[in-house]
Write a protein that binds this DNA or RNA. Structure first.
Lengths: 241, 241
DNA sequence: GCCGATTTGTCCGTATGTATC
DNA sequence: CGATACATACGGACAAATCGG
């Protein structure tokens, strides 16, 4: 786990910003004064600040100072952003969740599935289809493929809770990186069977590949979301093109 | 612009990865050997590598090396990611674009518009509605609000090309940061009038706020995309929670 | 307009820790 | 065990942008 100084400073400043100690449009203390309050080098401060900048909390201004640009957003909607599991998002939004397992199988990746999922042909994986409820409304249809050698002892019981918790708590390996792709797709008959779509005839679809610390692909997932409860946040700097 | 060493190295490595000099799943040369090939300090190398890591090109593995995890993706779809203007994306995908101006006005932000756009009440802005064609298909409906004091000399002529080019080339100010929010919304009558939706009854909607180097909000934009041509990429590290 | 102080941006060399092989 | 490789941290130097007098 990160016992690094810069992550501690990052978390402390993040908390101060989120709780309004530093408010929107305020200026952060200068880097030099922060080195004194945290008793560390300027490089370490700058590392913490760059994390906050990347996440859209800060805006550094050359020669002037660093401005806080974090704003609270309406927590009414269910949102995803960063790598956050369904349960984490739901907990953050104080919602009740339930998961129903529709399919739980093992299979070997063939050519066709390889093209779809990115796993090498011959890979042995778990295939799990789950229906996610928020406050008893069926809203998300998840199709997961997990590499069996990465998550050897998966059970429907575990899958009905959080697979990510299981991976991080009970296994040595940890997730390191995730690539996602967001599109809008027409609803299939399968979607309509399980998800309460209302008037919509399409869904928000997030497909993702997850890699472990060794760069091995360990997961492919497609999540199909009811549009009303889907929201994706992103913040981007225009630089280094 | 940025003639920083680490950006040059970043661009060079990025190019080598995209052109296959370093292929998917290959190992990058070690940081120490890169300091020799680029004749710079290890810090500078690490800075370039961290950019590539953030963008999903590299996966560093403690004690082992750095693996390339960049994969070419199908360029058939129109995609957005990072801060990239419509024209940049289209050019990257070698498509013909045309822009039709539906509305070009000046107005003053009132309370209601302030809540929607994030501009302070009383702000004087341009309001522009544009319809974007790709290969003569009307696919994107853009509603832009630009702060007039930031882009004083806007004309319909300029708006029909790229406003971003105009800002970066002709004005001193430059865009620094953009926050975006992606949702799926039911199509309105206005949408259906202009966009070829086919069977879809909804669209992919991207709303964004853009800030200049001083942290002033200078733009609010809502882009409504035909689902077939919308794709949003993202890559995230699980760390520093 | 100039100058000096402040602040952020870039870069370096070095040292130490930790994981892998 | 030692060698290699990435991770963290420090202190110093200079550049570039800004601001006040």
């Amino acid at each position: 786990m990160p016992r690094a100084i810069f992550t501690d400073i990052y978390k402390d400043l993040k908390h101060k910003i989120e709780t309004g100690v530093y408010a929107y449009q305020d200026m952060l203390p200068s880097e030099n004064s922060l080195t004194e309050t945290y008793q560390c080098s300027r490089n370490t401060i700058r590392r913490a600040l760059s994390l906050l900048t990347d996440k859209g909390y800060l805006q550094p201004m050359h020669g002037k100072g660093v401005r806080i640009i974090y704003q609270h957003r309406d927590p009414a909607e269910f949102s995803i952003g960063g790598i956050e599991s369904f349960r984490e998002s739901a907990a953050r939004n104080k919602l009740n969740v339930r998961t129903q397992i529709l399919q739980f199988d093992t299979l070997v990746i063939d050519e066709k599935l390889s093209a779809k999922t990115g796993f090498a042909p011959g890979s042995e994986v778990w295939k799990i289809i789950r229906l996610r409820y928020l406050d008893e409304k069926p809203l998300i249809l998840d199709e997961n493929y997990f590499l069996q050698s990465f998550v050897p002892d998966l059970t429907p019981e575990i899958a009905s809770h959080s697979i990510y918790d299981h991976i991080e708590n009970n296994l040595h390996g940890s997730i390191a990186l995730s690539k996602r792709r967001m599109t809008v797709e027409k609803a299939t008959a399968f979607d309509e069977t399980y998800i309460e779509l209302g008037d919509y005839n399409c869904l928000a679809v997030v497909t993702s590949q997850t890699f472990d610390a060794d760069g091995r692909q360990v997961e492919y997932t497609q999540s199909r979301h009811q549009p009303d409860y889907f929201c994706f946040y992103d913040t981007a700097m225009r630089s280094h093109r």
